[in-house]
Design a protein around this nucleic acid. Structure first.
Length: 586
DNA sequence: ATAGGGTTAG
């Protein structure tokens, strides 16, 4: 490393300097991180190809590897072809690169064709070839085919799988949601019959997958088992576990995990603390989030844009949008450039506080700064405009976003249809829904819920009913919101029989009513003075652990004077009020 | 120093 200075290109055309300086330049490309990396590599490739005698094939493979690492697979294949045309013979290394590139270009079948060619020409594919193909199958969503090939290697003793083979299969299984299969394979690696022992990375994949599958306790068990076997956890292991714990409101254990990792000599990173900041913010404890940021600063770790965005989200969630905006100043002080996500959240915060003028000003300002609003930014603005009673401006913005080439997503359409229906435009909303061509949108139960509810509210109960039937006919599963909206619709029309029928039917279909479902039903029954029916469902909901909400409770109190001294309704109300007093609430 | 898997935070 005594000569890392860049040497002008023209010196390389003199033969005397060739091999040594080719090595130098390949070295630069491998370690460097310039924007011209690929172009420089191509330039060097041409020079090497013209050099007589040809540099060793090793130099060429090193150079092409640079291109592959930059994910320029087509380019890499083109270079291999050029080498072939120049009469440089392929070897197992170049063939493996070629197979890998085809796999990465979603041409795994071509990769297998190359394998057949190798065999026909009497060459031997090696373990790397199989690892590449197994990964190719995983990338092509064929994890079970990957497992088949893996098993074939074992059973036919083609070659002995190594850590990479196991890692590829385990990761593939986890990514495809087959965590238990991945765990099985990990167990096999641990067993005496397997020569290949698992590394921390193998455990990490399964631990993370278990956490994502909401099986945090099993992840913790595996973590304990791994430690017991002497495998040292990495910062990634801890991050996955801390994230998993936080997702289930187990912040105390997560904080303990943080102490544990430091005790074990594993330093938490910015990402570790950011997980905690985000989690505290999501549950509304911005104070704890701020304390976490102080803790990371004490350790010399610098919060980044993701950390601060989480914090901004936290303040917005509490409706403290002015405090959220102050976070931007703190970011600037630390030379952290707010990105479009930062501003999108702030804009959303202002919209939710109905401060649409402020949101619009910010929306304009960021564009003046050169930031490009994304679908999320537009969707927030759309919601803000609808909720501030400006549907005309909302639809103009919707057209504007499409004119800018941004495709609305499911959330955008949910906001749009909800806003339109609230402004008596359910017919237009429905017409727009009919014109959608994306299956993802046409099969979104959430969109149906909004339209069903919207049509009911616009005074089109029959259209709502048709949409519900259509949803079922499509084979889509109505969810608890769908049923609640329909029950509400029946109640509004005084069709309590139908409402009750649907309540039973939803349970038969494996969809349990929630607090909202019961509140809607009981409230409507009370409003229509169906006190006895209301009593039945009130008892049922309380037995299931649901409480009447504020609106239901008001309706209840209004009815009390109308019912007898020893009525069940009165008893329920008395019981409820005493329970609430015990809670310390009023 | 010729080829292959790991992607934990918004």
């Amino acid at each position: 490393m005594n000569c890392t200075r860049r040497i002008p290109l023209r010196y390389y055309s003199t033969a005397s300097l060739s091999t040594y300086h080719f090595n130098q330049r390949i070295g630069y490309l491998k370690n460097g991180s310039g924007a011209t990396k690929v172009d420089d590599a191509l330039q060097l490739f041409d020079e090497m190809l013209q050099r007589k005698p040809s540099p060793s094939i090793i130099k060429f493979t090193q150079l092409i590897s640079v291109i592959v690492k930059e994910k320029q697979y087509s380019t890499a294949l083109m270079l291999l072809k050029q080498m072939k045309l120049m009469g440089i013979p392929a070897n197992i290394y170049t063939i493996n690169i070629s197979i890998n590139c085809h796999c990465r270009l979603d041409q795994v079948a071509y990769g297998f064709a190359l394998l057949a060619t190798i065999l026909k020409q009497g060459h031997q594919p090696d373990l790397v070839t199989y690892n590449i193909l197994i990964n190719g199958l995983v990338l092509a969503d064929g994890v079970f085919e990957a497992v088949e090939l893996f098993k074939k290697l074992l059973s036919e003793k083609v070659c002995e799988p190594d850590q990479i083979t196991f890692g590829t299969v385990i990761n593939g299984l986890c990514k495809a949601g087959h965590t238990s299969k991945a765990l099985e394979l990990l167990r096999f690696m641990e067993s005496v019959s397997c020569k290949c022992k698992p590394y921390v990375e193998h455990y990490n994949a399964v631990i993370d997958s278990l956490c994502k599958d909401k099986m945090v306790d099993r992840a913790l068990e595996l973590f304990a088992m791994m430690t017991q076997k002497g495998v040292i956890a990495s910062v990634i292991t801890y991050n996955s576990l801390i994230h998993g714990l936080c997702n289930f409101g187990r912040e105390t254990e997560a904080a303990q995990m943080l102490r544990d990792m430091e005790e074990e000599g594993v330093s938490p990173g910015v990402d570790t603390f950011t997980i905690l900041v985000d989690s505290f913010c999501k549950k509304g404890s911005v104070k704890d989030a701020e304390l976490t940021i102080q803790a990371m600063l004490r350790r010399g770790l610098h919060p980044n844009v993701i950390t601060y965005n989480a914090l901004i989200d936290g303040y917005c969630l509490r409706g403290e949008v002015d405090d959220a905006e102050k976070v931007i100043d703190r970011m600037m002080e630390r030379d952290i450039v707010p990105d479009i996500i930062t501003y999108s959240r702030l804009i959303d915060g202002y919209c939710k506080k109905k401060r649409i003028d402020k949101a619009m000003r910010l929306f304009q300002e960021i564009q003046d700064k050169g930031l490009i609003p994304n679908v999320v930014t537009y969707s927030s603005m759309l919601q803000g405009l609808f909720e501030s009673g400006n549907p005309a401006a909302a639809s103009e913005l919707f057209n504007q976003m499409q004119a800018k080439g941004l495709a609305p997503n499911v959330c955008t359409y949910r906001i749009l249809f909800h806003g339109m229906c609230n402004n008596s435009q359910c017919t237009d909303a429905l017409a727009l829904f009919r014109s959608l061509e994306s299956n993802e949108l046409m099969e979104d139960v959430g969109l149906y819920n909004i339209l069903i509810d919207g049509c009911s509210k616009c005074g089109n109960p029959n259209m709502a009913m048709d949409l519900f039937d259509e949803l079922c006919l499509k084979g889509l599963k109505p969810n608890v919101r769908t049923y609640t909206v329909m029950i509400n619709r029946f109640c509004q029309e005084g069709l309590f029989g139908k409402a009750k029928e649907l309540l039973r039917k939803m349970e038969e279909n494996g969809c349990l009513p929630n607090s909202v479902t019961y509140n809607v039903l009981v409230q409507e029954l009370l409003k229509k003075n169906e006190c006895q029916e209301a009593e039945i469902f009130l008892e049922e909901m309380i037995n299931r652990g649901f409480m009447p909400d504020h609106a239901t409770f008001e309706n209840l109190l209004v009815r009390i004077p109308n019912v007898g001294e020893d009525s069940r309704l009165r008893t329920i109300v008395l019981k409820l009020t005493s329970v609430e007093r015990k809670d310390g609430r009023t």
